[in-house]
Design a protein around this nucleic acid. Structure first.
Lengths: 337, 337
DNA sequence: ATGAAAGCGCTAACAC
DNA sequence: GTGTTAGCGCTTTCAT
């Protein structure tokens, strides 16, 4: 367990001052006109002994931790797990590490988490926020931390946001169902005021309204427990025997909705047509395959990390806040006739 | 953007020395016999102004970052995503944050990643290692960092490991197939020397050998590209028309294997029986549902984080290295007759 | 029971 | 071009 080398040790061994080493390390050699010869010598020595600057000390000094805080609803949800993966790749390429956490859509938990990240001095935040954390995020922003929101927006928070056209997505999906002759279309969603869920519901409602059709909405409280969802969906379907189609508002609602449907012995699409919001391996591979509104995960993560890296690079420039709304695709499969 | 308070500001405002504040903050009040009255006053003030110690400075001083490095093959793989989630919950409960990264099974990338984590002074490591990083991990360990391995073991590394009975799992699965009358059983696996894949293969081979049956093994190079896997599996199945059953060595091999099977128009289980290693929503919900060897994800993550937290708590005590091998369950579904 | 001060390792303003 | 040095905010030894 050999002692870690410090910049001081290097300086001593080389009979140079720490400043010089520091300048070379931080790419100020040119600007400070340090002799090429010296630069070479220092770099060679550093490589030889495998010296690595202590990033803690550096962070303490510079105030930058080169860490990004990623806050999602649940890192084990495939949608967020995929986003996490792509953000990771990009962040690491740019010298940033990722601290992650799952909010469980829990406002209080999220507040705590924000505070923890703040204490850790993360340089920037990527957040899919639950309701009710507007104040905390605004505090973050006004204290100078770059924040990019995604998946759901917080209208009272004035910062970059990357999302999808939720309204249009469900609106189109419902119209597609209607054009295929479905007349009693249900919507299973989260009991939530989050912007994306509200918009999805509005798209559903508008499409129905234009055709003078009845709404059949089931709002389910957020839960990590598949059984909770299955029970709610089952009860809903039992009660609404007239339904000939159902749109699920999220991927896990759909996954567990499918379980409920199969449990009830319903046949897709003959007894019930199904559309899911957000794609999932399950929807491609189940038999029949399930029509899904697919989000452009790659683009979403790409835009999110780009926005954040830009802010991180030029924190001074008070750029206009950007709101990016990407399009989804209705991936038509066999779950409707 | 108000300036952050430091312990010095607090000390000044309260007309107390920083030492006292620090002692109170770190729970040494009792031991240092600081008057209750003072303790109260300080804590009240701290709560009032919302002072939070700078964890960077603290880390620099103490050498502890209260961060755990989590290295998995791919955070977007449901198996690892679920593990990540459970480890997160546990770690946060104990005051640790998680820095994560995906190795892609890439030895060089992993070496870099280890170094990065090391530079960040993570307090402990949880690693599902690729081949070839034995030296780096041993260096880590001998420099005093606690390391817990999981999913795949590195025999040359002497540290805690949590895994499953890979050999027994495939051995039993194959025997189950044989007992159901299958005679030409294929095994689709990763072209990898990782311990878990080797053991799974051995289980397959032993079971076949005991019944004097031929092996049909397809080793596929690791790839993030589903199409690569689909092509390999398709080619394999086309070549080996005599197969009446196939065991997939990982969940994503199975998921993409299913795609290949459906593409080829093969019917499960009539044309081909299927067993997957590692469960997945897809296997439960596809029709027919797919028999799977399920890993006890909750237990695995629980043991992993416990082992690490224990080491973190008592680093001195040179405990015996623990190797935990958990059992899997053969979840029988409709993919075999 | 409380305070002064050293020092963790680094950066950068300032001096020469 | 290179060196000296003052902190960044905290913990902890030592002194009182």
């Amino acid at each position: 367990m050999k002692k870690k080398l410090s910049i001081n040790d290097i300086a001593k061994s080389l009979n140079v001052s720490v400043t010089t080493i520091s300048f070379i390390l931080n790419g100020h050699a040119e600007e400070k006109r340090i002799s090429d010869e010296l630069v070479q010598r220092v770099q060679k020595y550093i490589a030889e002994v495998g010296y690595k600057p202590n990033s803690l000390a550096r962070s303490l000094r510079t105030g930058k931790s080169h860490t990004i805080g990623l806050m999602v609803e649940d890192i084990s949800n495939p949608f967020f797990a995929n986003i996490a993966r792509m953000i990771e790749d990009n962040a690491y390429k740019n010298g940033y590490k990722i601290l992650y956490c799952s909010t469980d859509n829990d406002t209080e938990k999220t507040k705590d988490l924000i505070q923890m990240f703040q204490e850790r001095h993360v340089d920037g935040y990527i957040i899919a926020p639950p309701e009710g954390v507007e104040t905390e995020i605004n505090t973050l922003i006004s204290s100078g931390s770059p924040v990019v929101l995604f998946d759901r927006n917080l209208p009272e928070v004035n910062t970059d946001y990357v999302g999808i056209d939720n309204y249009g997505s469900t609106y189109n999906a419902i119209n597609h169902l209607i054009s295929r002759g479905y007349r009693n279309i249900g919507f299973v969603t989260l009991s939530s005021l989050q912007s994306q869920m509200q918009e999805r519901m509005q798209g559903y409602e508008s499409a129905l309204a234009e055709h003078n059709m009845y709404q059949h909405i089931k709002e389910i409280p957020y839960s990590n427990e598949p059984d909770d969802i299955i029970k709610h969906v089952s009860a809903f379907l039992m009660r609404k025997k007239e339904l000939d189609a159902v749109l699920f508002g999220t991927n896990y609602l759909a996954v567990n909705g499918l379980r409920a449907i199969y449990n009830l012995g319903l046949k897709i699409p003959d007894d019930l047509a199904v559309i899911a919001f957000d794609d999932h391996d399950v929807f491609q591979l189940s038999n029949p395959s399930i029509t899904a509104i697919t989000q452009p995960i790659k683009e979403i993560s790409g835009e999110v990390i780009n926005l954040l890296l830009n802010k991180l690079k030029s924190p001074l420039k008070q750029k206009k806040v950007q709101t990016l709304i990407l399009d989804t695709t209705l991936q038509i499969r066999k779950s409707l006739r």
